[in-house]
Measured scan of single mutants.
Amino acid sequence: MGFKLLSKLLVYLTASIMAIASPLAFSVDSSGEYPTVSEIPVGEVRLYQIADGVWSHIATQSFDGAVYPSNGLIVRDGDELLLIDTAWGAKNTAALLAEIEKQIGLPVTRAVSTHFHDDRVGGVDVLRAAGVATYASPSTRRLAEVEGNEIPTHSLEGLSSSGDAVRFGPVELFYPGAAHSTDNLIVYVPSASVLYGGCAIYELSRTSAGNVADADLAEWPTSIERIQQHYPEAQFVIPGHGLPGGLDLLKHTTNVVKAHTNRSVVE
């Protein structure tokens, strides 16, 4: 069995187990497998329904001669939608809004960016022009300005110390501490036991640490421990890039980060 097929099978099995364990909360999309990078042309966006009122959005972007996937989250909030992270750029984010209108038909009224990198804030200006209120932590807003990236308009308070959590509509926002970046936030959907790890969490097929220019490698494993301790009931975990899975993604990420750190020390 090929690795790609095995990865998709694991996603399907995880979703099936969740649907059985929580039949009222989960209505997993039966329309197909989780979209992969090879299936999404740059400039297009796919939506994948995880649970009743919960979707991931998947886009792709060219970077350094390669094409990478990027995940975000959409959560229903009454007759409105909360968006977590842009679709990595203005063109993708405009396509995301169009796809949401086509498939869901509810307005996106608020959006949260989970850290300051372009795959999370690139497209904020498109959201703002569409009347979406954009939010991020003060740290993310400051770092985005320093980096020359787009800056969300509103500040999220109460997320300055490791372990801080605040309720934001249908989700809980959690600051686990520094990891992929010093400002990275985690998003949890309690009604569906869905954990969105953003770039602080890796997919299972990833074996290298990737972009760690703004990471705190020493603190990252401790931050992941905080996530595990705060959300032990999480059933569906979405990484910032690639295929979702279960809580095993947290341990896998820790292993990859520690291996990278150990290699760096040896070198």
Rank of each mutant, 00 (worst) to 15 (best):
M1I: 13
M1Y: 15
L5G: 06
L6M: 10
S7E: 12
S7V: 11
V11S: 08
Y12S: 03
L13I: 15
T14Y: 03
T14N: 12
A15D: 11
M18W: 07
A19W: 10
I20P: 14
A21L: 08
A25K: 13
A25V: 09
A25T: 09
A25Q: 05
A25S: 04
F26Q: 10
S27P: 09
V28N: 02
V28F: 12
V28Q: 12
S30L: 07
S31Y: 15
S31T: 04
E33A: 09
Y34D: 06
Y34E: 09
P35V: 09
T36D: 03
T36P: 12
T36H: 02
V37C: 04
E39P: 08
V42T: 13
G43L: 10
V45Q: 06
R46S: 10
R46T: 13
Y48V: 07
Q49D: 07
Q49G: 07
A51C: 08
A51R: 04
A51W: 10
D52E: 05
V54C: 06
W55V: 03
S56H: 01
H57L: 03
A59Y: 07
A59Q: 15
T60D: 06
Q61W: 09
S62H: 03
S62Y: 09
G65D: 03
G65M: 03
P69Y: 07
P69W: 03
N71M: 02
L73T: 03
I74L: 05
I74C: 11
D77N: 09
L81Q: 01
L82Q: 12
L82T: 10
L82F: 07
L82P: 00
L82N: 06
L83R: 00
I84H: 02
D85Y: 00
D85M: 00
T86M: 09
T86Q: 00
A87V: 01
A87N: 00
A90H: 14
K91N: 08
T93N: 14
T93I: 00
A95G: 12
L96T: 13
A98V: 14
I100E: 00
E101V: 09
E101D: 14
K102H: 02
I104G: 02
G105D: 14
L106A: 06
P107V: 11
P107K: 06
V108A: 12
T109L: 11
T109R: 07
A111M: 07
V112Q: 00
S113L: 07
T114E: 00
T114Y: 00
H115A: 00
F116A: 07
F116L: 07
H117N: 00
H117F: 00
D119W: 03
R120E: 08
R120Q: 06
V121W: 01
G122A: 06
G122R: 07
G123D: 05
V124H: 07
V124G: 14
L127R: 02
L127P: 00
R128Y: 15
G131P: 03
V132Q: 15
A133K: 14
A133I: 00
T134F: 10
Y135R: 06
Y135N: 15
Y135K: 03
T140L: 04
T140M: 15
L143S: 14
A144P: 14
A144N: 14
V146F: 08
G148D: 12
G148N: 13
E150F: 00
E150D: 15
I151V: 15
H154L: 08
S155M: 01
S155K: 15
S155L: 00
L156F: 10
L156H: 01
L156Y: 11
G158W: 10
L159Q: 14
S160G: 12
S161K: 04
S161R: 12
G163V: 08
D164W: 09
D164C: 09
A165M: 12
A165K: 13
A165I: 05
V166C: 13
R167V: 04
R167K: 08
F168S: 06
F168N: 10
F168Y: 09
G169E: 08
G169H: 02
G169F: 13
P170F: 01
V171N: 00
E172Y: 10
L173E: 01
L173H: 00
F174P: 00
Y175D: 07
Y175S: 10
P176W: 01
A178Y: 01
H180K: 02
N184M: 07
L185F: 03
I186L: 08
I186Y: 07
I186M: 04
V187Y: 01
Y188F: 12
V189A: 12
V189F: 13
V189W: 11
P190Y: 15
P190C: 01
S191I: 04
S191D: 15
A192G: 10
A192D: 03
A192T: 07
S193M: 13
V194S: 15
V194N: 00
L195F: 01
L195E: 13
Y196K: 03
Y196G: 09
G197F: 14
G198V: 12
C199A: 02
A200M: 06
I201P: 00
E203A: 12
R206E: 15
R206I: 11
R206N: 15
R206Y: 15
T207Q: 14
A209Q: 12
A209Y: 03
V212K: 07
V212D: 09
V212C: 08
D214P: 11
A215H: 11
D216C: 08
L217R: 05
L217N: 07
S223V: 08
E225G: 07
I227D: 02
I227F: 15
Q228D: 12
Y231Q: 15
Y231K: 10
P232V: 14
E233G: 05
A234F: 01
A234L: 15
Q235V: 06
F236P: 11
V237M: 02
G240S: 13
H241T: 01
H241F: 02
G242E: 06
L243V: 13
P244G: 14
P244N: 03
P244V: 13
D248E: 05
D248P: 15
T253D: 05
T254W: 12
T254A: 08
N255C: 02
V257K: 15
A259C: 04
H260Q: 02
N262K: 12
N262C: 11
V265K: 02
V266S: 07
V266K: 14
V266I: 08
V266C: 15
V266G: 10
